[in-house]
């Protein structure tokens, strides 16, 4: 029976390999990379050791093999904002013979507005699998992001999240919100976040959130080199029920060293004006043909 199962798996993988190879051939056969382990970095043990207790310290690369959603139905208010984020093509904006299935984007990151959370966890907006460092710092956990070189502070001193923001006597909403964290068992770090600035998107499709959204991240270290993350969103004004936004994996970064991965406004504006607009997918007038 087990042999039969393995045979089926092998057959499926063979089909995947073949289709992948054909796809690559049609599009662009790519060079085999020479390997990227920095000289002097010790070879990783295989299999990996067990996950150390209460310890995520280090640089992790990801996300990889991310599953988004499923998303629940949106409320009318949420749907209205979502439609604004991803507008249909504007009549007359594109060249007359341009396809009408190319939607312009209102992505705030087009000109380097902050990604915020949870979108920064997706990382690949520009770096394609960037990195996150977890670094304990006294009564808080710091999360350092390769992309944009921003950081989050996750407080572990027992403080409460703000009950509301942007109200008299209440703190301001923030792109990265307010976060508190605790350990659940030996290997799962739980982060609760509130007070998010509603200008950010929760994903790259433009799904919106309100300032009352509540996020919960669960970071589980599966073993020495594997980290699993799930993110749930509770935002009853825009979504009809709480939902799991993403489940994904991060891996131990071999060389533990980040590139400088910045969205530079002057560069992003050049990219938008010189490439995205003429290509028909950024708002604004494309130059005449």
């Amino acid at each position: 029976m087990r042999n039969r199962v393995v045979e089926v798996i092998v057959a499926l993988l063979a089909v995947l390999v073949l289709s992948s190879a054909l796809m690559a051939q049609e599009r662009a056969p790519r060079a085999v990379p020479p390997g990227y382990v920095t000289a002097g970095v010790p070879k990783m043990p295989n299999p990996p050791g067990p996950a150390p207790k209460h310890d995520l310290t280090g640089a992790w690369v990801g996300p990889i093999m991310t599953v988004m959603g499923p998303y629940p139905d949106m409320t009318p208010a949420g749907k209205a904002v979502f439609n604004l984020n991803m507008p249909v093509p504007e009549a007359g904006r594109q060249a007359p013979d341009a396809p009408q299935n190319v939607a312009a984007t209102n992505d705030p990151f087009m000109i380097c507005d902050p990604l915020g959370v949870p979108r920064d966890l997706l990382n690949h907006a520009i770096s394609m699998r960037g990195g996150i460092v977890f670094q304990p710092a006294g009564n808080r956990m710091l999360m350092l992001f390769e992309q944009q070189r921003v950081w989050r502070e996750v407080w572990m001193d027992g403080r409460q999240l703000p009950a509301k923001v942007d109200a008299p006597g209440a703190p301001d909403s923030r792109f990265y919100g307010y976060s508190v964290g605790h350990w659940d068992g030996d290997n799962t770090f739980v982060i609760d976040t509130a007070g998010l600035d509603p200008r950010t998107w929760i994903d790259e499709r433009g799904h919106p959130h309100t300032k009352d959204a509540h996020l919960q991240e669960r970071w589980t270290r599966l073993d020495q080199y594997n980290l699993e993350a799930t993110v749930t969103v509770d935002d009853s004004k825009f979504y009809t029920k709480p939902f799991q936004l993403m489940k994904t994996n991060y891996y131990w970064m071999k060389d533990q060293e980040f590139e400088e991965t910045l969205c530079v406004p002057s560069e992003a504006i050049e990219y938008r004006d010189k490439l995205a607009k003429p290509s028909g997918w950024a708002p604004g007038d494309a130059p005449a043909k």
Binding site: R30, V61, W252
Partner: peptide, 22 residues
Amino acid sequence: KVMRDTQTGADNGGRADTGVGR
């Protein structure tokens, strides 16, 4: 000499040990 785009995949796991223990 030929140099290609990344469009059939990015680092192909080059920065991570994707094959380790999974």
